[in-house]
Design a binder for these strands. Structure first.
Lengths: 219, 219
DNA sequence: GTCCATCTACCTCTTTGGTGGTAGGGCGCG
DNA sequence: CGCGCCCTACCACCAAAGAGGTAGATGGAC
């Protein structure tokens, strides 16, 4: 039940080398464990049933079937796995199709390894994660299903939002406490809560998140 | 000898209320101490001599003389104080004039209080700090003097730059160590060094700095 | 060759950050 | 009225971060 229990992954891609690369990469993160790999859509579906993974990394372009098709099968089967599409295509149509089919993430294969890890954790936390920032908005408008799990970007209380801003300015809890004239321990409480609500793991992530959100609003 | 020895401030502004407001604000930061305030340019020059402050907060528009004029006097006198211009004017000419005269900072009075504190610390660390991001580039091209103290934005080694990027992704030192296959202690060393070079105080500031730099390059 | 910067590693030490729990006062809602 | 939410505050505990120091290995510059 703990929020950081290890996530079980299934990798589906017809490029063995790519699979190995991703596995090696994921091995860096202790919270993830690769429990299976498939080299085709058919095998992928089979393993998805058998292993019931938490997350499926799914190639969009496979020889025997489209990743979107496999995605549809998986989702239609009622499997609870979140599915992250991995692809070389940055075509909007592919993205839209994947999201309509219920993808929880859409990442380009050229993504930086570190970026991929970060995105993976986002998806693991229940977020919908897309490489392109703009596509993110597009995603929300298209997805009619799964309304319950959203990053609750606006669910912060006033005080939490204020503290988040101060974190983004690089202030320590102690300084924030002086600024708001409350106890440092109280600041910690608010930080703890806002991290939970935003599915973030540290004040550093919170700061980055806040900055990127601000930039996204006024470009 | 601690790198955060308190900085002595002189405030020059003909609005008493504004002076008080700034003083109250600055009282929040333990590393700064207001040692004097002046309500005119003439008095400001006198106190600048007498008190030899580390930083002078200087109103651009005063009744008896322009802030730029006082700035020139102070700089010509060989005083080592860094001077931060405070103004309501966002006119480029004023900014240029102030920078030509040797200002180390140029902040608008409508600046958010927290922002002002952050900028103050930047100036305290030897940076030249300007409110407008765009003006910052403009500033560097105009300033022919004081080439020694610059944020050294490019002075990082490859490893330091790599680690900075990972920090900006929210990774802990431990994760960075795994990613780069080096010891965590070694990561700390690099972090320590890059914080020094960039005049930053924490990994949070480093992360924000990196993100904003990236956004500034590709808007 | 020496000098110097870099990368690596390890050490101690203090501060900061994050989690868990408890708890009281204020405030709106049913 | 009680209930839930928010804000506040405190506690203990452990992990992480940052400062300081020493030091060996490399490789390029002089």
């Amino acid at each position: 039940m703990s929020p950081t229990s290890t996530q079980r992954l299934l990798i589906v891609d017809d490029h063995p080398l790519f699979r190995k690369g991703v596995m090696q990469l994921i091995a860096l993160l202790p919270e993830f464990e690769v429990v299976g790999e498939a080299s085709s859509g058919e095998q992928g579906i089979e393993l998805a049933y058998k292993l019931a993974p938490d997350i499926i990394l799914l190639d969009l372009n496979m020889k025997d079937m489209s990743g979107v098709d496999m995605l549809k099968v998986v989702k239609a089967a009622g499997l609870e796995a979140r599915v992250v599409m991995l692809t070389v295509s940055d075509q909007a149509e592919d993205l839209v199709a994947a999201l309509r089919a219920g993808a929880d993430g859409y990442l380009l294969k050229e993504t930086e390894p570190e970026e991929l890890l970060v995105k993976l954790r986002e998806v693991g936390a229940g977020q919908v994660s897309i490489t392109e920032r703009l596509a993110q908005q597009l995603a929300r408008s298209l997805r009619t299903d799964s309304p319950p799990r959203e990053p609750d970007e606006a669910g912060l209380t006033d005080q939490e939002r204020r503290i988040l801003d101060l974190i983004a300015l690089g202030m320590s809890n102690k300084l924030i406490a002086r600024e708001l004239d409350i106890a440092e321990g109280t600041v910690k409480v608010h930080v703890k809560h806002l991290l939970r609500k935003l599915n973030l793991r540290s004040r550093v992530e919170a700061a980055v998140w806040a900055v990127e959100k601000k930039k996204a609003r006024q470009p």
